[in-house]
Design a binder for these strands. Structure first.
Length: 854
RNA sequence: GCCCCUGUGGCGGAAUUGGUAGACGCGACAGACUCAAAAUCUGUUUCUCGCAAGGGAGUGCCUGUUCGAGUCAGGCCAGGGGCACCA
């Protein structure tokens, strides 16, 4: 019995594919293109199982589409800027560039072991000057297009990483990397005007029909569009006005106060002459948004002494508070409170003894007796206690109120978004330098394109906290491009999310002297299929969508959406193990006991087995892909990744599963090689007549061909895998005895190999050669099923009596209803179940079922 | 708190989209080969009553629609995820 040697075979075919340049592509207007992209990895050191899953899925798609005749672009690169490189520099004294490039070399070698159909000639690393030079150029273009601006702003300062974080990078008031409590600081920052596209980014989601609904929903919520109005309240005794945003202008007659955010300009003004207000503001800033206590925090405030005039009731003066629950970042940083119809406002009103006037009557309530107690009424109803709005439905009342406000010059309809502009300045070394020069006389100036790139200096040290670019002796000293006087470079680098916001476009012409080449992006973009983790559902994908619009606005691309199709794969999980002290153990430190428990391999000490969780270094429940590949081969790892679990769901990595995949690889090898001697030559003509068994086998084979293609098309790899198992079972059980049987067996084996090719490429390529072919399997077109063989001649129908299955009958396909009925009623078990009664009705569903109702 | 998703054997999961529930794999059990083991092969494997033939129950729970519900509707329960003082 010959055994398949995965290591030898995989190395052989990887080398041959590379030598033949199988996966190198170029634009070819005569052919239809297909751009498959997996989210590129951060070069953290070694690849992990999450990468293996991601790139296996992408590779199956790429190989399948290639076989379908598409001109497939399938590139790979490195998201190479980022904090871990600087941390390594601080901890171990290795330069970030060296650390990064060494990791890239390691990981590239590991990826090559997987046998991915990548065009390695297009490899890019975002930390390479050839890449970030072009990114700087895009920044300058965006500056000219008015999509970049500088703003003094209160930022999220991470005291551990000593850097500024975007709002999106602050999770529960803590830094997304360091976990440190975030402080507020004022700094001058560069911003991308993502909000210029708020409405477009929202509306275009409807057209992304090959994106998961879940991701679209998350983006919708993130952009957070709400329709309402701004109201300009007159401030009593002053000339200026207080601007407020509301989604409920229909409840204006229920207003009983206004409230300002702690950092509202008017609050600051009040604080200058009001020490209690100043104290309160200081307290709010200390808490910031960073306290979990927000959840339980009481609605508190302090009176400013100011009052505003109600726009519809000039006699009514509303007190103005500074309140801890009003956010400066949303709307205008000020609200009017309508306690009867907003829970927060109600809590606040109860605390400070403010009026609660209901102005929306629930459909089943009585205007005389309706009262608000502890719960605000936020539902629909009709306006009452509201003068000219009385009797109107909420939607009508909103419109009427806005019209009146507008007519009086006291307000207008307004659409508000939750989305905020993207602050990209980072006080970090290992990132793309912001190509700006600060001149005392001329202000900030873009670096002229001829002077790009602004290169990172290599002679930097990490022996003190803060940004090495600031500490560098000479790097920042330069001259103003406008006046020629002495000036300083911007010492900030860009958020690394910028690097990944356009890399898919760079892959189209990775060595171009411009950011992109129009011919190339016009041919390749958009990405037809993007594949990655759900954790990027909001940030990365939204930034890439914004950047594509910015690239279009600056004339670099002709599309507005980067990714026509998106697939988000699930995580790779593994059981966790703990010793008696509660310390985590690696899978290779334990062995399973026969009772289903586990013990330590060296000591036999007891091990607690925990449920499967996402593989993570901290829990030590990791399996090294390289170890798996060197033991079982890449094909086995790939096959297991695709088996069992649907790709969008989390999967559990188990030894038993890998061994199962390994067994199948061996079985496939034997199935083909052990039958080779009995097969006719590959060009042998089909036999004139076939045995019944051979005919049945052919049907099974062609049905699998048809179904398997559908499965790959729809990302249902686990189902495709199951069908291939079934086909292998049928072929394995087939004994060629009659003339023509061997021909059918050859046909079946060849098709089996072709179907499994995208999933186990090395093994199948080898078997293809063994079957006598001289060309690459990867150059073989995807098989098509013979339509005549995809449907059966006979079909088995279930027979139900009153909805319960009592028998099955075999009929020719598309048999007459009458015939089905007669055959069904003749079944003894059906007769028995009918218990001598007449059939009241017989329902026949062609080729499916007969249901007898008695 | 708001929004979304998911619940099927011991386990991962199939089920032609309202038509034979449990494909395929893992695990387990039995057998064959072997001096023995590994590897491989052949069976069995939702639960339950029964020696069997054959019944009964069954897709988180409860109601409903239908000749027929894992699939549709309403209401619960459980688990997971996203957002979160957003006016």
């Amino acid at each position: 019995m010959s055994r398949y040697n995965a290591q030898e075979t995989e190395e052989k075919w990887q080398k041959r594919w590379e030598e033949a340049g199988c996966f190198a592509v170029k634009e070819d207007p005569a052919r239809e293109k297909y751009y498959v992209l997996e989210m590129f990895p951060y070069p953290s050191g070694k690849i992990h199982m999450g990468h293996v899953r991601n790139y296996t899925i992408g590779d199956v798609v790429a190989r399948y589409k290639r076989a379908k005749g598409f001109n497939v672009l399938h590139p790979m690169g490195w998201d190479a800027f980022g904090l871990p490189a600087e941390n390594a520099a601080m901890e171990r004294g290795v330069h970030p560039a060296r650390w990064t490039y060494e990791n890239i070399a390691t990981m590239r070698a590991q990826l090559k072991l997987m046998g991915l159909s990548l065009d390695w000639d297009r490899e890019i690393a975002t930390c390479h000057p050839g890449y970030y030079a072009q990114q700087q150029r895009l920044f300058v273009d965006m500056m000219r297009a008015g999509l970049v601006y500088r703003k003094e702003s209160s930022v999220n300062w991470d005291p551990v990483d000593q850097t500024v974080l975007a709002n999106e990078q602050v999770i529960d008031g803590k830094g997304w990397r360091s976990g440190a409590a975030i402080e507020r600081r004022k700094l001058s920052q560069w911003f991308f005007k993502i909000t210029a596209f708020s409405d477009e980014l929202l509306a275009a989601l409807d057209g992304l029909d090959r994106w998961p609904e879940k991701v679209r929903l998350m983006q919708r919520n993130w952009i957070g569009r709400s329709e309402g109005a701004t109201v300009q309240f007159r401030i009593v005794g002053r000339d200026d006005r207080l601007s407020v945003f509301t989604t409920r202008p229909d409840t204006l007659f229920g207003a009983s106060f206004c409230a300002l955010a702690a950092n509202h300009p008017l609050a600051a003004e009040v604080a200058r002459s009001n020490p209690q207000a100043a104290d309160f503001i200081a307290e709010c800033n200390r808490l910031g948004t960073s306290e979990e206590a927000i959840e339980t925090a009481e609605k508190r405030g302090i009176a400013t002494g100011l009052a505003v005039q109600h726009p519809f009731l000039p006699e009514l003066k509303l007190p103005v508070f500074i309140a801890n629950f009003v956010l400066m970042e949303y709307g205008t940083g000020a609200i009017f409170g309508c306690p009867a119809h907003d829970q927060r406002d109600l809590d606040f009103a109860r605390r400070y003894g403010l009026a609660v006037v209901p102005v929306v009557l629930p459909p089943d309530a009585d205007a005389e007796t309706f009262e608000i107690c502890d719960e605000a009424f936020t539902g629909d109803g009709r306006a009452f206690n509201s003068d000219f709005l009385d009797g109107l439905e909420v939607a009508e009342a909103k419109r009427a109120a806005i019209d009146k406000l507008a007519a009086q010059g006291d307000g207008e309809g307004k659409v508000q978004y939750r989305l905020r502009d993207w602050g990209i300045s980072r006080q970090r070394y290992w990132g793309c330098p912001i190509p700006v020069i600060h001149c005392a006389g001329c202000g900030p100036q873009a670096v002229p394109v001829a002077d790009l790139p602004v290169r990172l200096p290599e002679d930097v040290t990490f022996d003190r906290p803060g940004n090495p670019l600031v500490h560098h002796a000479t790097w920042k000293q330069t001259t103003c491009p406008n006046c020629g006087g002495a000036a300083e470079r911007d010492t900030d680098t860009m958020d690394t999310f910028v690097d990944s916001a356009w890399y898919f476009a760079r892959f189209c012409s990775p060595r171009a002297e411009t950011p992109v080449e129009r011919d190339a992006v016009d041919y390749w973009l958009p990405v037809d299929q993007y594949i990655g983790g759900i954790e990027h559902a909001i940030l990365h994908l939204l930034y890439a969508r914004f950047f594509t619009r910015a690239l279009a606005a600056t004339g670099h691309v002709g599309v507005s959406e980067p990714f026509a199709g998106l697939f988000t794969q699930g995580m790779v999980c593994h059981e966790t193990y703990k010793d008696a002290e509660g310390k985590w153990l690696f899978p290779e430190q334990i062995e399973k006991t026969t009772e289903g428990g586990a013990q330590q391999l060296d000591s036999g000490a007891v091990v607690t087995v925990g449920r499967a969780e996402k593989m993570s270094k901290s829990k030590r429940n990791v399996v090294d892909p390289e170890a798996i590949i060197s033991t079982f081969g890449a094909d086995t790892a790939r096959w297991f990744m695709l088996s069992d679990s649907p790709p969008e769901r989390d999967m559990e990595w188990t030894d038993a599963g890998v061994e199962g995949a390994w067994r199948f690889a061996q079985r496939l090898w034997r199935l083909v090689t052990e039958n080779l001697a009995a097969l006719p030559a590959k060009e042998a003509p089909p036999p004139a007549a076939l045995s019944t068994a051979a005919q049945q086998l052919r049907r099974a084979v062609h049905k699998t061909v048809a179904a398997c293609g559908d499965d790959l098309e729809q990302f249902r790899f686990n189902r495709g895998v199951a069908r291939i198992y079934e086909l292998a079972n049928s072929l394995g059980g087939f004994k060629a005895v009659a003339p023509g049987d061997a021909w059918v067996l050859r046909e079946g084996l060849e098709l089996l190999v072709r179907l499994a090719g995208p999933m186990m490429p090395h093994l199948c390529e080898e078997l293809w050669t063994q079957l006598g072919y001289g060309h690459f399997l990867v150059d073989e077109p995807w098989p098509t099923a013979d339509p005549a063989l995809v449907s059966d001649e006979q079909v088995i129908l279930a027979v139900q009596v009153n909805g319960k299955k009592r028998a099955t009958i075999t009929l020719p396909v598309d048999a007459e209803e009458e015939r089905a009925k007669t055959v069904a009623l003749a079944e003894p078990s059906v007769q028995r179940a009918m218990d001598g009664k007449e059939a009241r009705k017989v329902i026949v569903v062609r080729n499916r079922i007969v249901n007898v109702v008695v």
